[in-house]
Design a protein around this nucleic acid. Structure first.
Lengths: 158, 158
DNA sequence: CTAGTATAGTTTGATATCAAACTAATATGG
DNA sequence: CCATATTAGTTTGATATCAAACTATACTAG
């Protein structure tokens, strides 16, 4: 019982009012929590392909007629170039992506999805579709659209 | 120029329609992007305390009259117990948190914020407040509330 | 009481994340 | 042309994240 161990109480705390304010209003905390839950859901769904939700999103983003450079992709994914450099490595190791120096600017490197990557993604997209439907099915009507709209509302530059 | 390097085009791609559908509708991708942006904003603001946004949220969550156990805190933060075990270590090393075995169930460990942790957080909360105001100031009217509401709408159990 | 089961955390090995410092290549000024 | 500044990526070292396998403790049937 709690009351039987008064010596365990911490006497000197932040005001609980402050704590509750942070917990109820912090957009960062709320977003990190939702991000972890969503990541788990899609990581589970994509596990059969040995893809994480991040790797799936990265492969989708790389699937462009002109292979994008790291410097273009990182802002789109809202991640640093150093994170992207690291994220590409396991995919390149598996032959799903190729890293090619740009002929016109040898500092720049373009990321190209390989035929093996495309073949894997053809299947993975089907599973993504069903995992997304699963997820939305657990939400109230309009909740998914509301979240999409709200997240669009916090994008920089509209 | 793009058209001058046709040999760089990947012939075999997923349909761009599919790609655009994923990019425009995936709640996971949209949430991870927002989570990264928000994390960076608050990591920057809290850097002067050598706290990450995660460590800040964790310390806020630990600041309770009865020190919570790992098994209680992990679901609240929507993270696994193994992640929480790891996250506590740097804070314990710095003396901001203490890990105490529960007297009534020696499997369980309670996390207590120390006086040093409370003192640090008194300052950090002020900075959080101003960083949050900064962030909201960059949004359209109602965007923050809309995001809070939308994120609440994807919480399990209401 | 004891065997089996369930629960609470930890460890391990992998990916994910960033800032800061670094390397290499391009652009610019003189 | 050369020196400087800028830009594109990479490396480093730290935290963050998870599932799976593990340890230790508690519970529960028989």
């Amino acid at each position: 019982m709690v009351s039987s161990t008064p010596e365990l109480l911490t006497p000197d705390l932040l005001p609980l009012e402050t704590v509750h304010h942070v917990r109820d209003t912090c957009l960062c905390l709320a977003t990190q929590r939702a991000a972890r839950r969503l990541a788990r859901h899609f990581d589970n769904a994509l596990r059969r392909f040995d893809l994480t939700n991040n790797q799936f999103s990265l492969l989708v983003s790389i699937n462009r007629p002109v292979p994008p450079a790291i410097g273009q992709l990182a802002p789109f994914l809202a991640m640093s170039a150093s994170t992207l450099t690291a994220a590409v490595k396991p995919l390149a190791r598996r032959g799903l992506v190729m890293i090619e120096p740009d002929a016109e600017d040898r500092r720049s490197k373009r990321l190209r999805i390989t035929p093996v990557g495309v073949a894997l993604m053809r299947e993975a997209v089907l599973v993504w579709r069903s995992a997304h439907a699963d997820y939305e099915r657990g939400l109230a009507d309009g909740a998914a659209d509301a979240l999409r709209a709200a997240l669009a509302g916090v994008e920089p530059e509209g």
